[in-house]
Nucleic acid binder design. Structure first.
Lengths: 136, 136
DNA sequence: ATAATTGCAAAAGCTTTGCACGGAA
DNA sequence: TTCCGTGCAAAGCTTTTGCAATTAT
């Protein structure tokens, strides 16, 4: 059983084949897939898995703190299995999301008066190396 | 004619009553409304305005650089008439979005190798003063 | 006059929900 | 055995699109 799987159990969640598959796909995955992409990727190996199950599972995993959800593009939520502190760079042409180490001095984390900060997200928007200079 | 309106003209866009109304509603608005909220707010004064027009107009204004779109909550895009450099704080309980001045030292703005940065967004997630301590 | 823009309605995505069956513990 | 989780289908939302009629320039 992987570390993530035992973490699931610790959260009081059952370990089903579907959850194993989704966790296994996310593990070490740096593509920041959306729910739909996870579904497509697992379809070959798990033809009966429902898209709703993918959504349900991803929500569970987020609530359990095993993965992060990131919102950089309109119309979809992407998931990141790396829960350590880091930033993201989003290419506005190809849509890819890159991980970035967060610099030590990334600014004060103070909100408005009385605001209790739980997490800080930082996203760089621009063109990735492959898309720089290309039109449209 | 307001500054925003002449800016519209400069972009080669026509100045319609609907666009004036939307610009007027956004001007100085600090609530970061979604398209649906803009539509609801203008409904009384402009009963014939279509929701699609609101969406079209907001997209125009974003492309013209007159407003910013911000994505902090799932399922909707919010708009910010303040295009100056600043950050946001999002209350995960009540959903309100607050403006934050961006500190001078807000970290390096370098992406992956070859990445050309166009803009940087920073969001603090947490509980606002009114929601801190409240349950759920 | 001309072409952009609107309103309306339909459609397209993404995501959630209800419910009966099936499987993990 | 228990009841959580799955699959399926339907519904909910936000957003986009097609097209005829309207209107800014």
């Amino acid at each position: 059983m992987t570390e993530s799987e035992s973490a699931l159990r610790r959260m009081g969640l059952r370990l089903t084949p579907q959850r194993s598959a989704i966790l296994g796909y996310l593990e070490g995955n740096e593509t920041h897939p959306s729910a739909g992409e996870v579904f497509q990727a697992l379809r070959a190996e798990h033809p009966t898995m429902a898209l709703a199950t993918v959504y349900n599972t991803l929500r569970c995993l987020v609530e359990a703190g095993l993965i992060l959800e990131i919102r950089v593009a309109a119309g979809e939520v992407n998931y990141d299995p790396d829960t350590s502190t880091h930033d993201h760079a989003y290419c506005t042409r190809c849509g890819r999301i890159f991980d970035l180490p967060r610099a030590a001095a990334s600014g004060p984390e103070a909100g408005p008066p009385g605001f209790s900060v739980e997490s800080v997200r930082r996203v760089l928007y621009g063109r990735c190396a492959e898309c720089v200079g290309k039109q449209k």
